[in-house]
């Protein structure tokens, strides 16, 4: 049995006093791909936000152990430097900040915290040129400001490109498929699949089954009203696609 990367134990959390997560239990081991599915408002994005340490969310109970550490004690940047990566549902624009500069700063923060030497501009560019092909992105993107003026598809691909460069231990993909056409979806999913490694894991959050045609999960969990109400393998996703969420939520 492989080592757990993430252990979520009875996690409860909310926003401004409103309880959203009501006792989540989930263990993710190295080498695994987990999908969390659920209807709108079930708490999917809250789960991603709490794991990444976004301000404004209050954890009201439970524990999260990441890589043997108490995740909830760490600041968001410390979580990132420990290899937790969130692909944003709505990637943020930072006008005037060069994409290459941004990503190099991010990578060097992560390398520094691992005690590795920082990459200089040339070393970084060589690394990046390999990775950018993976996502079929134009190199021109590296000269533009972070996400500024990017199309919806470019923004999502850029997230996965950043993931490729930063090589996280745990990647959380928050509705990465939303707003993508089928070609973009295939490229994004292809990139994610190529980034799969035996020592890392992926948590894919999605509303629709169609992403899971391209990213094959080892486990599928259904989140409803702040709890995981059903878990299974990829067959569960197909069943959901056929029968809708009502099939499960009525019994919950």
């Amino acid at each position: 049995m492989s080592k757990p990367i993430l252990e979520i134990k009875n996690l409860s959390a909310g926003v401004e006093g409103k309880q959203i997560l009501k006792g989540i239990n989930l263990t993710i081991n190295a080498g695994e791909v987990h999908a969390v599915m659920g209807p709108n408002g079930s708490g999917k994005s809250t789960l991603a936000a709490v794991l990444a340490g976004r301000a404004g969310y209050d954890v009201t109970g439970g524990d999260v152990i990441y890589n043997g550490k108490d995740l909830l004690e760490l600041d968001p940047e410390e979580r990132a430097r420990e290899g937790l990566f969130l692909a944003f549902q709505y990637p943020v624009e930072i006008p005037g900040v060069n994409s290459t500069y941004f990503l190099k700063a991010a990578l060097n923060e992560i390398r520094k915290s691992k005690g590795e030497s920082e990459l200089d501009a040339m070393e970084f560019l060589n690394l990046v040129k390999d990775k950018i092909k993976l996502l079929e992105l134009n190199e021109d993107l590296l000269r533009r400001s972070v996400n500024e003026g990017f199309s919806g598809g470019e923004k999502k691909r850029n997230e996965i490109f950043q993931m490729a460069v930063l090589e996280p231990k745990l990647a959380i993909l928050d509705e990465t498929d939303s707003g993508l056409d089928i070609d973009a979806l295939r490229i994004v999913a292809g990139g994610v699949n190529k980034l799969k490694r035996p020592d890392s894991a992926q948590l894919v959050i999605t509303h629709y089954q169609r992403l899971l045609n391209f990213i094959i999960p080892d486990f599928v969990h259904v989140l409803y009203d702040g709890r995981i109400v059903k878990s299974g393998d990829k067959q569960l996703a197909l069943e959901l696609e056929a029968k809708g969420y009502d099939w499960i939520t009525k019994g919950a």
Partner: peptide
Amino acid sequence: IGEDQIFYCNQRGLSTQD
């Protein structure tokens, strides 16, 4: 200055001041 922008940077490993 967006809390979103700061969080995005934090999530990529940059401190809030940076």
